[in-house]
């Protein structure tokens, strides 16, 4: 069995009276692409937020590289090398694309000099090559807030890559993207995983995408872990089919 990068153990989280997550246990293996699926409101994004530190959890433990992170705050967790993208894309809207990329460099070992480093040179080259990787090179000098939603989504993905995270949590990367471009995005996600060695954990609604992409998939329903396994396991699991067709 390969090494687990993230392991979530028995995590529960409730808002008011709503049990958003109940006794969730899951793990993300190093170097893998892991998927999380489930109907709307089943607690996927809540689980994401618990992992990256947006709110405290009620019980359980979350470990990243075997260190407990459930008490840390967002920034500390990000500096350990775990990043997330947002369902509602978030970029620095008044800055241009290259600047957005340049400020997204890794802050894991930021020293005194890197704070005041010039914006030219190696950082800029890398920013531009990653923009090329996601296909935004021609838009690099535009104010990022003026880009279309899909372009902003790609920019956010490129910014995450710029940071060279150990693991990247993507919240619905294909939502709002033109269907004809989804294949290109899947390809880029896979290349990021294989060529850049970034472990991915993806929330996705689009079954075709996640079945193609992930090697292991977890299915949530009503805040509980319903099933897990390889894509083909889940495709044949009656409980998963019921959950999606509104059976339960």
């Amino acid at each position: 069995m390969s090494e687990q990068l993230i392991s979530v153990n028995d995590v529960s989280k409730s808002y008011g009276g709503v049990h958003a997550n109940v006794d969730i246990t899951m793990s993300v293996a190093k170097g893998s692409i892991t998927g999380i699926i489930g109907p709307n409101g089943c607690g996927k994004t809540t689980l994401f937020n618990s992992i990256v530190g947006y709110h405290p959890i009620d019980k359980g433990s979350i470990k990243f590289e075997n260190a407990e992170i459930s008490k840390l705050r967002v920034g500390d967790i990000a500096r350990l090398g775990m990043l997330r993208t947002f369902q509602q894309t978030r970029i620095y809207g008044k800055m241009n694309c290259v600047d957005n990329m340049q400020i997204s460099v890794s802050h894991r070992s930021s020293s005194k000099t890197s704070i005041f480093a010039s914006r030219k040179g190696e950082i800029k080259d890398r920013a531009e090559s990653l923009l090329e990787f996601v296909g935004l090179y021609s838009k690099r000098n535009l104010i990022s807030g003026d880009l279309s939603f899909g372009q902003q989504k790609l920019l956010e993905f490129a910014m995450a890559l710029m940071n060279e995270p150990k693991v990247l949590l993507l919240d619905e990367p294909t939502a709002g993207i033109n269907p004809t471009l989804i294949n290109g995005l899947i390809d880029r996600l896979r290349r990021a995983n294989e060529e850049l060695g970034i472990t991915l954990c993806v929330i996705e609604h689009n079954m075709r995408v996640i079945m193609n992409l992930a090697s292991k998939i977890y299915c949530l329903s009503n805040g509980k872990m319903l099933a897990s396994g390889t894509p083909s396991d889940l495709q044949n699991d009656q409980r998963v089919i019921d959950a999606y067709l509104g059976g339960s």
Partner: peptide, 22 residues
């Protein structure tokens, strides 16, 4: 410098900046 970009990033979206590890 990078400092200028970082403070602009904080101005545009501080939560995002935190989430990116700045």
């Amino acid at each position: 410098t990078q400092f200028g970009l970082a403070i602009n990033a904080i101005r545009d979206d501080e939560d995002k900046a935190e989430a990116m590890g700045i």
